[in-house]
Structures are given as structure tokens and as C-alpha cells.
Design a protein around this nucleic acid. Structure first.
Lengths: 227, 227
DNA sequence: AGTCTAAATGAACGTCATTCATTTAGTGAA
DNA sequence: TTCACTAAATGAATGACGTTCATTTAGACT
């Protein structure tokens, strides 16, 4: 198959710049188009046809650049991961850094719920921005003194909480309305009614703050020196 | 509409037993059929056509009993909620009760990932078994001494963690493989490699145990007397 | 000038959930 | 018995949607 050893060609990179003859599409344009579409119509509006229309292209053209709609979601996911705020790990203490990271992580994916199964279930391979985010977080944990072998479990636990909390942001206010059954469940109905509605904060924000504080203060003394 | 007071009929319940003329379908049969289908083919196999076929009925017949496929999922959800183990709240201390509850909750929905958006986003109204589960949990918290107004936030925080952890159970082993990018992310790749693989426990189980312990021990001293 | 190939086209396909006009068959009343 | 009422089932049709495929188009290199 490689029978004819290319005679001249000066070796280094064969076929370098100027490769794409037309280059009407590409990962960046597809990502941007998908984001614009999601921003306008939500994930319900993100169809391959609509995406193609936004890019002035036939739907089937997309399949020259992505192999499925999941691939499009993966592109969007990787883009969003780049927006997660990891700055605290370089400037703040561990606790505050985790808090800043977790808040921005949750806020971003609260607007992108349908991506959660994609993030949670698909390998990070070939998602460079995602990997970079994890690198910053891991480095932050390590700098704070965490033993290498325990970092990932802690991050995964925090992420699990973050994903679940992102769902909670989108829950309707009446999600705990027992309806007709209220009388048969006095404790639950009472607790729901007694939920302290902190003004300026939604129920989801309150639960997130409580859970995040609990997790951080429960995690810290375990492996962090100088608790 | 109730103009003619039924002459004889001894009054109490008008039209009691024997109401359904044919009763070929119904919520119970639909739930059982859906569960059987899910058990055999997974959620991919749960289509309205397949469900109808399993019940020896035309697809459109289902719509006399449920108003959408979401309704079917809601029936399944409520059934599963009945299987969540809340027995600990009557017999164990708060910490162990929460642990037992959380474990069974996660184990059940780890096999029913597609239901998580349904649970997390839809009101519990008219999901009687779900409400009963919450009643038992709330009662357990109250008995342990939690202030009424703080119970729901804590439960929601725990649930968020549980849902996220259920996803994690289904993540592939190589989810954190950086692939080509491993060299540019030494901390992360190192931490992934150093993750202590406890024999007999999956990575997901380890992270779940870590997070649950952290959450419980972080929650308890906050509002629980006698920490 | 001619070849190679990445990329775009447009017409299909198959799978789903859902709708609707129509039929079927118990039930309760006359 | 007969008849009207109605819950329930039917089967055909619809409209999205993701995806495939044979074919065409047009730069880039020889």
C-alpha cells in the first residue's frame, strides 16, 4: 500500500496549510451555530435540520464533520466546560475555590440540562477544554495538600451533587405540592410549607448552598491537612 | 347534572364495583407492561408501540389511559419510589437511616437513568407512592430533631447528590481517559491513575461513599441536636 | 489538462409519538 | 327486550426527526 516512496516532497509535513479547499463548515462553526440555536429556541429547537438551516447548508452536510447529533452535543459541552470558573484554585483557599468552581459549574449547566447525560456518561477523550478544566481542579486539590489517590473520588462526588443541583434549578415551584394527598402526609406537607423562603434566593439556591457547605465541610477534614 | 336523585340504589357510593365494562387496560397493567419491557430491552425498547404490543392492544388504545408517554414514565417512577428503602428511619439512628435510604435510592435509579429528569422536574402531585416515601423521610428527620423549616433543603441536597451518583454508576470505566492530551495534563492524568481501586467496589461506589459520608457528616452538626 | 478528494446536495428511509374518525360492547333505564 | 349512553379499542394517517447514500461540485496538486 505504501509501495511508492514519494520521490521528492522534502519530507517534513506533507500537505500543510491551505488544506481545506472550501471549508464551508467545521467544528467551530457547528458549535457556534448550535449555541445560537440553543440560546434562541432551547434544546427542543436544536435539530440537525435547524442547525443546517442556520448554517445555510443541507442537513446531510453536517455528517461530513460530525458523525451524529451526539457529536454536536459533545462540541457544545466542551465549549461550555471552558467557561467553568477555575480561577479560584490559583488564588483562593481550597474551600472558597471549590465554592466558586461549583457555583459557576452549576449555573452554566442549569441552562444546559440535556447535556448532563452527555457529560456524565461519555469519556472526556478528545474534549480538550473539558480535560483542561479537570487539570486545573486537580492541581488545586493537589496544591491544597490532597493525596493524589483521593482527589478524583472527591471531584466526582462534588460533580454528582452539581449535576443533580442543576436539575433542581429547573424544577417548578410547586414540585412538592402533594395535592389531594396532603392530609395523609402531614410531616411532609408541613415541612414543605415551613421551608424558609429566603428572599432573593430561590429554593434551589438554598438547597444548593446547604448541600455544598455540607459537602465541603465534610470533605475537608478527611484528607486536608490543617483542618 | 345530578338532577335525578337515583330512586332506589341505597345511596352510599353511586356506581361502585364493576364500573369498568371491559377494562382491558389500566394504570396497573400499563405500569407492569412498561416495567417488563424496560427489564427486557431497556429504555430504548420502551416505545408506545412495543408497550401496546406487549399488552395485546393497539398503540392508540394507550391514550385512553395516559395522555402521553411522559405519563407512562410517571407511572413507572411512582412504582419504583415505593421500592426505596425508608425502613431505617423507623429503626436506626439518623445517620444510618439516611445511609440506607440513599443507597437504595441510588441503586434503584441507577437502573432507570432516563427517569431522573422526570423525577427531578415534575411535581409529585398524584404520585401517591412518591409522596409516601417523602413522608417517611421527613418524619425521620423530624424525629431526629431537625427543625421543620430546614428538612426539605437537606433532603433536596441529598437527592441531588443521589441523582448525580446514579448517573455515575453508568459511566464507562474509561470516562477519565485523557487520550492524546494526557501529557499536557499531568496532575489530572496522575490523579486518575492513582485512584485507589478498592477491590470489590467500583469507582462509582467509592465516590458515592465518600460523598455521602461527607454530606452526612457535614449536615448533621448543623441542625441536629447532640452532634 | 487531468486526477484526487473533501465537502455539499437532495431525495430517500425508518422510527416514533400522537391524533382522529369510527367501531365495539358492557351498563343502566325504559 | 330494547335502546341510548359511554368507556374503550381500532386502524389509518400525520408530522418530526436522525440518518444514509448515490451523486455532484470545485479547489489543490501533479
Amino acid at each position: 500500500m505504501d509501495g511508492n516512496s514519494a520521490p521528492e516532497q522534502s519530507a517534513p509535513q506533507r500537505r500543510r496549510a491551505g488544506r481545506p479547499p472550501r471549508a464551508l463548515l467545521g467544528p467551530e462553526r457547528i458549535t457556534q451555530g448550535a449555541l445560537k440555536l440553543i440560546g434562541r429556541d432551547g434544546y427542543k429547537g436544536l435539530t440537525m435540520s435547524a442547525l443546517a438551516r442556520m448554517l445555510s447548508v443541507a442537513p446531510s452536510a453536517l455528517y461530513n464533520h460530525v458523525s451524529s447529533k451526539q457529536d454536536v452535543l459533545l462540541l457544545v459541552e466542551d465549549h461550555l466546560m471552558d467557561m467553568v470558573d477555575v480561577s479560584g484554585f490559583a488564588t483562593l483557599g481550597w474551600e472558597d475555590a471549590v465554592r466558586r468552581w461549583a457555583h459557576s459549574y452549576r449555573d452554566i449547566f442549569a441552562h444546559h440540562i440535556p447535556l448532563i447525560p452527555v457529560i456524565a456518561l461519555l469519556p472526556v477523550t478528545n474534549a480538550p477544554k473539558t480535560v483542561r478544566m479537570y487539570e486545573a481542579v486537580t492541581a488545586g486539590f493537589a496544591d491544597a495538600g490532597w493525596p493524589r489517590g483521593n482527589i478524583i473520588d472527591a471531584v466526582v462526588a462534588l460533580e454528582s451533587f452539581i449535576y443533580g443541583s442543576a436539575y433542581d434549578v429547573n424544577a417548578p415551584d410547586n414540585i412538592f405540592d402533594s395535592g389531594d394527598l396532603a392530609e395523609t402526609t402531614p410531616q411532609f406537607a408541613g415541612a414543605v410549607a415551613a421551608r424558609s423562603n429566603t428572599l432573593g434566593h430561590s429554593n434551589a439556591d438554598a438547597a444548593f448552598a446547604v448541600g455544598l457547605d455540607a459537602m465541603i465541610s465534610g470533605l475537608a477534614p478527611r484528607w486536608l491537612p490543617r483542618a
